[in-house]
């Protein structure tokens, strides 16, 4: 296990997005978040990049699927899996060389899913104070969870204010699918 962990760490070390990469792919992620906002979904955009190629992208699809786990990252991961399947590539070796670019810090669920798939690097815009799994609510990304894939590195803060503004705009609108708010009975 010791040597395996060492080689994984070394692979992650050599695998690190350049400033140029970050600039380019995050611009793409932000365009997707805007699209989500215009379609009444939570404005989060994300893409997964392998060998300078987008192998998965997604935006939040919770309301249209009635499945609360359909976050942008989960949608993108599904595309990555399909991409591997069509090319008959090994999922693990692709994932180990794939970076995720996302406008908002992945939530606790998505962070665990990224670990389970051995994604080594996550680049995100703003923190996610409500659900963040890379330190804001829980630190899933670097927690000691030997049965939950591998840890990943985070590069945070790129265009953070812009990402926050989009979220604020969304939460000012009403979510038509939410249940009636509970009235307090004091």
């Amino acid at each position: 296990m010791g040597t395996q962990g060492g080689s994984e760490a070394a692979a992650a070390e050599s695998f690190y997005p350049s400033d140029e990469d970050i600039e380019k792919w995050m611009a793409n992620a932000f365009d997707m978040a805007k699209d989500a906002l215009e379609n009444g979904e939570v404005p989060v955009g994300c893409l997964m990049v392998y060998n300078d190629e987008v192998v998965g992208k997604g935006r939040n699809e919770v309301n249209e699927t009635k499945n609360a786990t359909r976050h942008a990252e989960m949608v993108a991961l599904d595309q990555l899996l399909d991409w591997c399947r069509h090319r008959d590539l090994d999922v693990r070796s692709v994932c180990e060389q794939t970076a995720l670019y996302v406008t908002v810090e992945p939530c606790i669920m998505c962070a665990a899913a990224l670990r389970l798939l051995n994604i080594p690097v996550v680049v995100y815009g703003c923190r996610n104070e409500r659900f963040g799994g890379c330190g804001s609510v829980l630190e899933v990304s670097s927690a000691n969870l030997p049965q939950t894939g591998t840890m990943f590195k985070c590069v945070s803060g790129h265009r953070a204010e812009e990402a926050v503004e989009m979220l604020k705009t969304f939460y000012k609108q009403e979510n038509p699918n939410a249940p009636n708010p509970k009235t307090r009975k004091d």
Binding site: A68, T69, I108, M109, A111, A112, A113, G133, L138, T148
Partner: peptide
């Protein structure tokens, strides 16, 4: 962790 948070969502 993934499943537990999915249940929260």
């Amino acid at each position: 962790v993934m499943c537990a948070m999915a249940l929260v969502h």
